[in-house]
Design a protein around this nucleic acid. Structure first.
Lengths: 340, 340
DNA sequence: TTGTACGCGTTATCAC
DNA sequence: GTGATAACGCGTACAA
């Protein structure tokens, strides 16, 4: 009952010509006579011939696959990036192999090694928390040393020479903080993650810069650094009680949501009593009540750009002069109901 | 500067042995002498030799890739399924190639055809809206006819003979509706999508069955069928005004969230005035205020089961008697703040 | 215009 | 113990 896939050899045998004639005929080569071409093409269409990707890959040393390694897929931002990559990739005839590092250095290494042995033409990735913490980038170095193109996005590192796509995190935090200052807020606190995340560090800088520019003194105890994994309601609650803020900037979506719920349960009104701005313009921010003003990271655009950079690199490997670029996307402040 | 990847031939040349000796030595074959094995293995380790996946695939006719095609990735449920698939796949040494159909029949076909030509050992997929609407499953049929294993999950069809993983949607809706009835709710309305979605149909059945079992007459105008794409605030708003419900069952997460916001803006208290239960236990339901009681679909478990079924099938292709199975996962009602 | 021969990197069979 | 050879499916330089 199984209709096995037909291959060149089968067509050749059936039509009593050589394999190479079939191969050429199917590529519409000028060398082959109109008659045989038509005969072969008709037969191929009839039996739905499609070249075997693996054999073609082995021959061309091109897989038409791109590997994407992200820390976590249950995370709206990464999800939008994948969608962007997919969009562009499909258009160019590439498949996307997605691997999750699960925020773990080891998994990131394993995944990279698996894919680096011929499965893909290039990588798009965002560093896992484990890798950012450990600051060990040898697996990236090995990949680039082998000449495999790599594009880093969002969570990047200066240690590796390659193409990058990021948003201007400093600017994003600056604009958000400024918005809060302009509203007249005086006690603006920051909810963020630990410093080893490059993005958190930059957002923290932007926050501080905006305060300084407005002549406000930065207080260290107005900044709460939480572990990235399980959110700790209690820590947030205590922090808010201690600091009594009139505005909150959160460097991610989830901390902002948690803070808002804590405050609402205590009877505060958002934004009347307290304004909130979060990073990552995800579904949670959009559908919260009130909807949360957010710094959009434009994940889909980021994915598309990363894919474009990567595929350009893959398809023009002659470049002996790498000339790597870092594209910086401007973040956008999306004003909603959690600010005035 | 580029350190090209080393291959068997390079090792053979360097150590002045034959390629096959190297190959055997690296697989620790008994045929090779201890000395040469050690020498070769040491050399291979030093130069970090790793077999080329593509060549191995061509030889074994096994790619160790599995293709996952889903309608949308910016959707928490599918995202958890992918995570489940990834978990199991990585453990078994498989990569996951993710393709998005974008709810479109055409994209689904294109993606399938791309992957079916040797890129993957089997498929895991959930039907796009377009495919469910069109009821054209030829692309699936072709794939299974070629002997490529296929596991359908969540949005499945009876037209195709293959392994399947679903949750018991009827039961899920039944339990949720019963919960609302037991709370004493009298005017329970249903927010759902159009009938061509198999899951919506079943959830609708469960809702109606629960009402009938409780002796409540089902009113057709208590059921609102919305297009799946862009949610229409106004339609929901009008529906709620017309039906004046004291409880809402939503067959997905997003409609429930929208309904809640509409009601809250009108001054209703959840759950004091109106209870809400949604399907898909996603981030939105968890972090809404109040948090929404939901029917959990156990996406991660579903993904793991689908991956296990697929890989079992792939690795035991001798089975001439297919004997396909449909695994039915029991849904769980997660009680939160939007019900009593 | 068509066909032969070889290579892509690996593995398995068989001969030495 | 080791090595030559064929095969996986395709593409192409070269020969006929």
């Amino acid at each position: 009952m199984i209709k096995k896939k037909i291959k060149l050899k089968d067509i050749a045998k059936e039509l009593e010509v050589s394999i190479s004639t079939v191969s050429k005929a199917l590529k519409n080569s000028e060398e082959i006579s109109r008659d045989t071409k038509e005969k072969i093409q008709a037969f191929a269409r009839l039996y739905n011939y499609k070249p075997n990707n693996i054999a073609v890959s082995l021959k061309n040393k091109r897989t038409k696959n791109i590997g994407v390694i992200i820390p976590d897929i249950v995370h709206h931002f990464f999800t939008t990036v994948i969608r962007g990559v997919e969009n562009y990739a499909l258009e160019k005839g590439y498949n996307v192999i997605v691997c999750l590092s699960d925020e773990s250095f080891d998994k990131e290494v394993i995944n990279m090694e698996m894919l680096a042995n011929g499965s893909i033409d290039g990588f798009i990735m965002s560093l896992s928390a484990g890798t950012e913490k450990k600051k060990d980038f040898n697996h990236l170095k090995e990949v680039t040393d082998q000449g495999i193109p790599l594009v880093l996005f969002d969570r990047v590192t200066n240690e590796i020479d390659c193409d990058k796509v990021v948003i201007d995190d400093i600017q994003g935090a600056y604009v958000a903080t400024k918005k809060l200052i302009d509203e007249g807020r005086k006690r603006i606190v920051l909810l963020t993650t630990q410093d080893f995340f490059s993005v958190s560090l930059n957002r923290n800088l932007g926050y501080q810069k905006a305060l300084k520019d407005a002549g406000v003194k930065v207080k260290d105890d107005f900044i709460l650094k939480l572990p990235f994994m399980d959110v700790d309601d209690k820590a947030i609650s205590e922090f808010l009680e201690r600091t009594k803020p009139d505005a909150i900037l959160s460097t991610n979506e989830i901390f902002g949501i948690f803070a808002m719920r804590v405050l609402q349960k205590k009877g505060f009104e958002i934004p009347n009593d307290i304004s909130i701005i979060g990073f990552t313009d995800g579904l949670l921010a959009q559908h919260a009540n009130p909807a949360i003003t957010s710094v959009a990271q434009h994940g889909e655009k980021m994915g598309e750009m990363a894919a474009k950079m990567l595929i350009d690199r893959v398809e023009n490997e002659e470049d002996e002069e790498p000339n790597y670029q870092t594209k910086i996307i401007a973040p956008t402040l999306i004003e909603r109901e959690s600010t005035f």
